[in-house]
Computed example of a mutant assay.
Amino acid sequence: METARLASLIAATITMGLVSGLFYGFSVAVMPALRGAGDRTVVEVMQRVNVSILNGWFLLGYLGALVFTGLAVGLHLADGARAALWPLVGAFVAYVLAMTVTGLVNIPLNNALAQAGPPDRLADPAAVRRSFEGPWVRANVWRTLLCTLATGLLAWTSVVTAA
């Protein structure tokens, strides 16, 4: 049981770190870089990103963070490792909240951007950009903060269980 607990915690920390890093990268590099780009360019780039990100590697991290953190909670609970339980539950809750933000804000905005059509055929690319960019960036900051919190709590769990 100890090996399974440790393996699930390591897998949760790695996958959560990957998702945190992805959202952080958008917050500090991708979206600031696009801020200076033209409206059609922003629409086109984000439409392409929203299609290309849906791949197995992304899903391994995104869904893996949920599954492995949940597994770690369950295994620590079953094994009576109570000291590690609160940071694990906190990490799980923080990630579920991040996924909720994604599902309620980012995904609908991505879908609306896709439905806007090809960037070269948009009558008002500035309006499409305005309806997408600000809300998406704000939601991504929340996802980044929540996932970073979850990663920190998972790291803290490693400290607590090692003691």
Rank of each mutant, 00 (worst) to 15 (best):
N110V: 07
D79M: 08
I10C: 03
T41V: 14
L18Q: 02
D124K: 02
G103S: 11
L59W: 15
R5D: 09
V30E: 06
D79L: 06
S8K: 00
Y62E: 13
A94T: 02
A7P: 06
A163E: 10
M46T: 00
V128T: 12
T161L: 14
R129L: 13
A114K: 15
T157M: 01
A4F: 01
F23G: 05
V30C: 07
A7H: 01
P108S: 06
I10Y: 03
L109Y: 07
R5P: 11
A65R: 04
T148K: 09
V51Q: 05
L97M: 15
R138V: 13
L85C: 09
R121F: 10
N106A: 11
L104C: 12
G25F: 07
A81P: 13
T41E: 14
V67K: 06
I14W: 06
L18D: 01
V43M: 08
A155N: 07
T100A: 15
T151K: 00
L60T: 15
P119F: 11
P108T: 02
D120V: 13
M1F: 07
V51K: 09
G61M: 07
V51N: 01
I107G: 05
N111M: 14
A81L: 05
V73N: 03
F23R: 05
N106R: 08
G74F: 08
A84M: 06
G61Y: 02
T69F: 01
P32T: 06
V93H: 04
A83I: 14
L146N: 04
V137D: 06
V101Q: 04
I10S: 05
T151L: 15
M46W: 09
A155G: 09
Y95C: 07
L18P: 01
W57N: 08
V137K: 00
G152M: 02
T69H: 04
A162E: 11
V93E: 10
V45L: 13
L63S: 13
V101A: 08
T15N: 01
N140A: 09
T102Y: 07
R129W: 12
D124R: 10
N111H: 11
Q47T: 04
A112N: 15
N110L: 03
N106Y: 11
N55M: 04
G56L: 08
A98R: 08
R5N: 11
L22W: 13
D120H: 15
L149C: 08
